[in-house]
C-alpha cells in the first residue's frame, strides 16, 4: 500500500470440483491494480476471466472455490475474510456490474427498491436521503430518476445496464468490477456507455477491473490490459503496448482477429484451433498447440512470466531475448 496500490492479487487459483476431477479454471494469477486505474482483462470465452473476477469479488459458488492465493484489497486479504466481514466491505468499497443487466436486476422489485435495500444495508441514510441519492446516481448515468419506480422489464437493455452502473456508484466505491457490461448492447450503445464509464471514472476516481472478450473495446478506455489464456495471465501490458506491439503470440492473434475502423485495411486472421480442455491442459506452454511461433522447447517447458520493459509476458520467446526470468512474478 502507500504507493497507490489498491488491489494486489497473488497466486490466485480457482478450481471447479467436477466428476472427472478438479478443473483449474484460474491458475496462479497475479494482478495489481492502482487507485483510479482502468485494467482490462481480455480473453476468449472459457478462459477463466469471469471466474477470476468472481473470485476476486468472493462471489464464487460451489463447485467453484479458491484453492490458493490471496486477494489483498486495501490492505486486507479478501480470501481470508468471513462472509460476515465481507458484507461490510461489499458495495461500500467495491461494487460489481454484471454481464447481463436483464438478469442481474431482480424482476419483481422496482429499480428504486433495489437501490434502497443496499442503502439500508450499508448506511444509516433516511428514506429521504436514500431517495435523493438514488435520483442523483441515476442522473449520473443519464437515466431519468422517474425510472426509480420502474420495474426492470420496463427499461431498455441500455437503461438497465446504466441503472446497474448507477447502483454500483451509490457509495462511490474505490473499485468497480465489471463483467462484460456491454455485451448485450449494440455497438452504438456500447460505445456511449464506455465513454460514460470512463468519464465517471475520471470524475469520481474509482478503479475499474473490466472483463471483456471484445479487445477493441479496451483500446480507448483501458490504462493497462491483461490477456488471459486457458486460466493463465499470458500478458500484462500498457494499452499502447498491447495494441501497438503485443508481446505474446496469443495477444497478436487476438488483435489480428479484430477489425480497425480507422486504420489501414488489413486481412483479418482468426486463431486456428480451439482453447484447450482445462481438465487436461497441454504440457509446457498452454498456447503451444495453436501458436504460430512455436519452438522446440514450448511443449516441454512451462514458461513463467517474463518482465519485458515493465510489461509482463508468459512466453519462452522472451527467455532467449534476455528478458529476466520471472522468479518474482510482479511488476512493482
Amino acid at each position: 500500500m502507500g504507493d497507490g496500490l489498491l488491489l494486489d492479487v497473488r497466486g490466485l487459483t480457482v478450481q471447479y470440483e467436477t466428476e472427472s476431477g478438479p478443473l483449474v479454471a484460474v491458475e496462479q494469477v497475479d494482478l495489481q491494480l492502482r487507485e483510479g486505474e482502468f485494467l482490462g482483462i481480455v480473453g476468449e470465452s472459457g478462459c477463466g476471466k469471469s471466474t477470476l473476477l468472481f473470485a476476486i469479488a468472493r462471489l464464487l459458488v460451489p463447485p467453484a472455490r479458491i484453492s490458493s492465493g490471496s486477494v489483498v484489497f486495501r490492505g486486507r486479504d479478501m480470501v481470508e475474510l468471513a462472509e460476515k466481514e465481507l458484507r461490510q466491505v461489499r458495495w461500500r468499497d467495491f461494487s460489481v456490474v454484471m454481464q447481463s443487466a436483464m438478469n442481474a436486476l431482480n424482476p419483481v422489485m422496482t429499480v428504486g427498491a433495489q437501490l434502497k435495500d443496499v442503502c439500508e444495508q450499508h448506511s444509516t441514510m433516511s428514506r429521504r436521503e436514500i431517495a435523493l441519492r438514488s435520483a442523483q446516481v441515476l442522473r449520473l448515468v443519464s437515466v431519468d430518476p422517474r425510472h426509480l419506480d420502474s420495474y426492470p422489464h420496463q427499461l431498455s437493455g441500455g437503461m438497465r445496464q446504466r441503472a446497474m452502473i448507477a447502483m454500483a456508484l451509490l457509495f462511490t466505491p474505490q473499485l468497480v468490477i465489471m463483467d462484460e457490461p456491454t455485451t448485450a448492447l449494440d455497438v452504438v450503445a456500447q460505445r456511449s456507455l464506455m465513454v460514460q464509464i470512463r468519464e465517471l471514472q475520471k470524475r469520481l476516481g474509482f478503479a475499474v477491473l473490466f472483463v471483456t472478450h471484445d479487445m477493441s473495446l479496451l483500446r480507448h478506455f483501458a490504462d493497462r490490459v491483461a490477456v488471459m489464456y486457458a486460466g493463465q495471465v499470458v500478458e500484462v501490458s500498457s494499452t499502447a503496448q498491447v495494441f501497438g506491439h503485443p508481446l505474446h503470440p496469443y495477444s497478436r492473434g487476438l488483435l489480428a482477429a479484430f477489425p480497425s475502423v480507422t486504420g489501414p485495411r488489413v486481412h483479418l486472421v482468426g486463431l486456428p484451433g480451439a482453447p484447450p480442455d482445462l481438465l487436461r491442459p497441454p504440457r509446457g506452454c498452454r498456447f503451444h498447440p495453436r501458436c504460430p511461433e512455436v519452438m522446440r522447447s514450448c511443449p516441454n517447458v512451462e514458461p513463467p512470466l517474463y518482465e519485458v520493459g515493465g510489461d509482463l509476458v508468459r512466453c519462452l520467446l522472451y527467455d532467449e531475448r534476455g528478458g529476466r526470468a520471472g522468479t518474482s512474478e510482479r511488476s512493482s
Binding site: 459458488v61 461490510q88 458495495w91 447481463s100 442481474a104 435495500d117 444495508q121
Partner: peptide, 22 residues
Amino acid sequence: AEDYVRMARAKGLRPWTIMWTY
C-alpha cells in the same frame, strides 16, 4: 443460479433478505 441472486450477494445484503426478497 440467477444473476440477480449473485448480484444480491455482491451488494452485501443479509442472507435473510436475499433468501426472501430475491
